[in-house]
Computed example of a mutant assay.
Amino acid sequence: MELTGTVLAGPEYEPLEGRVVVEDGEIAAVEETETESTDIVCPAFVNAHTHVGDSIAKEAGRGLTLEELVGPPDGLKHRLLRETSREEKVEAMARSLSFMESAGTAAFLEFREGGVEGVEALDDAAAGLDVEPVVFGRETVDVLEVADGFGASGAHDDDFTAERVAAREAGKPFAIHAGEVGPDDIDPALDLDPAFLVHMVHAESMHLDRVADSDTPVVVCPRSNLVTGVGLPPVEALAERTTVALGTDNVFLNSPSMFREMEFAAKLFDVEAPEVLRMATAAGAEIAGLDCGVVEPGRPARLVVLDGDSDNLAGVRDPVRAVVRRAGVDDVKRVLLP
Rank of each mutant, 00 (worst) to 15 (best):
residue 1 M to Q: 13
residue 3 L to F: 13
residue 6 T to D: 02
residue 7 V to Y: 00
residue 8 L to M: 04
residue 11 P to C: 01
residue 14 E to R: 15
residue 16 L to S: 00
residue 16 L to F: 02
residue 17 E to Q: 13
residue 20 V to D: 05
residue 21 V to I: 13
residue 24 D to S: 15
residue 24 D to N: 15
residue 24 D to H: 14
residue 26 E to C: 08
residue 26 E to Y: 11
residue 27 I to C: 05
residue 30 V to H: 05
residue 32 E to T: 13
residue 33 T to M: 12
residue 33 T to S: 14
residue 37 S to D: 14
residue 39 D to F: 01
residue 42 C to G: 04
residue 44 A to V: 08
residue 45 F to E: 04
residue 47 N to V: 10
residue 49 H to D: 07
residue 52 V to N: 02
residue 55 S to G: 08
residue 55 S to L: 06
residue 56 I to H: 03
residue 59 E to T: 12
residue 60 A to Q: 01
residue 62 R to Q: 11
residue 68 E to I: 05
residue 68 E to T: 07
residue 69 L to K: 14
residue 69 L to C: 03
residue 72 P to D: 07
residue 78 H to W: 14
residue 79 R to Y: 04
residue 79 R to K: 14
residue 86 R to E: 15
residue 87 E to M: 07
residue 89 K to R: 15
residue 89 K to Y: 02
residue 92 A to S: 15
residue 101 E to P: 04
residue 105 T to Y: 06
residue 105 T to G: 05
residue 107 A to G: 05
residue 108 F to T: 06
residue 110 E to F: 12
residue 112 R to Y: 12
residue 116 V to C: 11
residue 117 E to G: 09
residue 117 E to N: 09
residue 120 E to A: 05
residue 120 E to V: 10
residue 123 D to T: 01
residue 126 A to C: 07
residue 132 E to S: 12
residue 135 V to M: 01
residue 138 R to H: 07
residue 139 E to V: 04
residue 144 L to V: 10
residue 146 V to K: 13
residue 148 D to Q: 09
residue 149 G to K: 08
residue 153 S to D: 02
residue 158 D to L: 03
residue 159 D to C: 09
residue 162 A to T: 09
residue 162 A to W: 00
residue 168 R to C: 00
residue 171 G to D: 10
residue 172 K to S: 08
residue 172 K to Q: 13
residue 176 I to Q: 00
residue 177 H to S: 00
residue 185 D to R: 00
residue 187 D to E: 15
residue 188 P to S: 11
residue 190 L to F: 06
residue 190 L to M: 13
residue 190 L to R: 06
residue 193 D to A: 13
residue 194 P to H: 10
residue 196 F to V: 12
residue 196 F to G: 00
residue 198 V to F: 03
residue 199 H to C: 10
residue 200 M to T: 13
residue 202 H to R: 06
residue 204 E to L: 13
residue 204 E to D: 08
residue 208 L to H: 03
residue 210 R to D: 03
residue 214 S to R: 15
residue 214 S to L: 14
residue 221 C to Y: 01
residue 224 S to N: 10
residue 233 P to V: 11
residue 234 P to E: 13
residue 238 L to C: 03
residue 240 E to M: 08
residue 242 T to G: 01
residue 243 T to G: 00
residue 245 A to V: 11
residue 247 G to Q: 11
residue 247 G to D: 08
residue 248 T to E: 04
residue 248 T to F: 08
residue 248 T to K: 08
residue 250 N to H: 15
residue 253 L to S: 10
residue 256 P to N: 11
residue 256 P to C: 12
residue 258 M to H: 09
residue 261 E to I: 10
residue 263 E to Q: 15
residue 265 A to N: 04
residue 266 A to Y: 09
residue 266 A to G: 05
residue 273 A to Q: 03
residue 274 P to F: 07
residue 279 M to V: 04
residue 281 T to N: 06
residue 285 A to Y: 09
residue 299 R to Q: 15
residue 301 A to K: 12
residue 303 L to G: 03
residue 303 L to W: 10
residue 304 V to A: 03
residue 307 D to C: 02
residue 309 D to C: 02
residue 312 N to V: 14
residue 312 N to T: 15
residue 318 D to G: 06
residue 320 V to E: 06
residue 323 V to M: 04
residue 324 V to P: 04
residue 327 A to Y: 02
residue 328 G to S: 14
residue 328 G to E: 07
residue 330 D to P: 00
residue 330 D to Q: 13
residue 330 D to W: 05
residue 331 D to V: 06
residue 333 K to V: 04
residue 337 L to P: 03
